[in-house]
Measured scan of single mutants.
Amino acid sequence: MSIQHFRVALIPFFAAFCLPVFAHPETLVKVKDAEDQLGARVGYIELDLNSGKILESFRPEERFPMMSTFKVLLCGAVLSRVDAGQEQLGRRIHYSQNDLVEYSPVTEKHLTDGMTVRELCSAAITMSDNTAANLLLTTIGGPKELTAFLHNMGDHVTRLDRWEPELNEAIPNDERDTTMPAAMATTLRKLLTGELLTLASRQQLIDWMEADKVAGPLLRSALPAGWFIADKSGAGERGSRGIIAALGPDGKPSRIVVIYTTGSQATMDERNRQIAEIGASLIKHW
């Protein structure tokens, strides 16, 4: 067993022997301040990774656009098919120029040779490549099948209805392509620590998230040296922004954090800054 596999296998073990965790309302004060600064709703939840206990939450059962955070769930569904012998990570998928959609920095470079399922998941999570996500959605049967996968996990809230990039439209009061912070946090925890996926697939999923290259201005910008984070960000229309993450000190994750916002007129930089400040408060009061 590799060191990384050992780390993920012992996530519940280490967490069980940690000192009790206590909620700190100071972080919620910052979440509410972010709402004021952005002029928009902000949803927040913080779960203990081992027990699933909610440590703090704000608007945990209000719907927010998922945006690209759905790509972690998508690759979880792909990995479940791999575990069941219905898919192979090494299978190569070929596609054409007509398949390319807006923001496809990886797939646009491989029109000639195609990409493997493993490479597509890596591109979808680490670079948020939209064509990679659409190609992977095709392998599982489309958005409705991802929703069905989530329902089978016990998540009857999260739903995907459309493809990239239309799913980022974020129309107010439109339930399409949305989740709730509580539902997303619980589902992410199941994917990373539950028995739904094999140990190898859980490790692969967290490795992809740990290698995320496009979430630097968010929670990662607030992390002290030595902290662990595996995350996936999302951005959408109407001032929408979000991030889902597993993080913790001492090089291992111990909490799940989900943050979503929508309806702001603020710039992307300002949305990023507010999420980073929430992260800084979380870490300060850990």
Rank of each mutant, 00 (worst) to 15 (best):
M1V: 04
Q4H: 14
F6E: 06
R7H: 13
F14S: 08
F17E: 04
P20W: 02
A23K: 05
P25N: 09
P25T: 11
P25A: 06
T27P: 06
V29Q: 15
K30M: 12
V31Y: 01
D36V: 14
Y44E: 01
Y44V: 07
I45N: 03
L49S: 07
F58E: 05
P60A: 15
E61V: 12
E61Q: 14
M67G: 13
K71Y: 00
L73P: 09
R81P: 00
G85V: 06
Q86F: 10
Q86M: 11
E87T: 08
L89H: 05
G90R: 10
I93L: 12
I93A: 04
Q97D: 13
V101Y: 08
P105G: 04
T107N: 03
E108S: 11
H110T: 06
H110V: 05
D113L: 08
M115D: 01
R118L: 12
A124Q: 02
M127A: 08
M127I: 09
S128Y: 00
T131L: 06
T131R: 02
N134M: 04
L135R: 04
T138S: 14
K144I: 13
E145L: 09
L146R: 00
T147Q: 09
A148Q: 14
L150W: 06
H151W: 15
M153G: 08
R159Q: 09
E164M: 00
E166V: 12
E166Y: 15
L167M: 12
E169I: 10
A170V: 14
A170P: 08
P172T: 12
N173S: 13
E175L: 14
R176I: 06
R176L: 08
T179N: 00
T186A: 14
G194T: 15
G194E: 12
E195I: 03
L197H: 05
T198M: 10
T198D: 10
R202K: 15
L205F: 05
M209G: 03
M209W: 03
M209R: 00
A211D: 15
D212Q: 07
A215T: 06
L223T: 13
P224E: 06
W227P: 00
I229Y: 04
I229G: 02
A230D: 00
A230M: 07
S233G: 10
R238V: 09
A245P: 00
P249L: 06
D250S: 14
I256C: 06
I256Q: 01
I256L: 11
T262C: 10
T262L: 07
G263R: 07
S264Y: 04
Q265D: 12
T267C: 10
T267W: 05
M268I: 10
D269E: 15
N272S: 05
I275Q: 01
I278H: 00
I278R: 00
G279L: 04
G279T: 07
H285F: 15
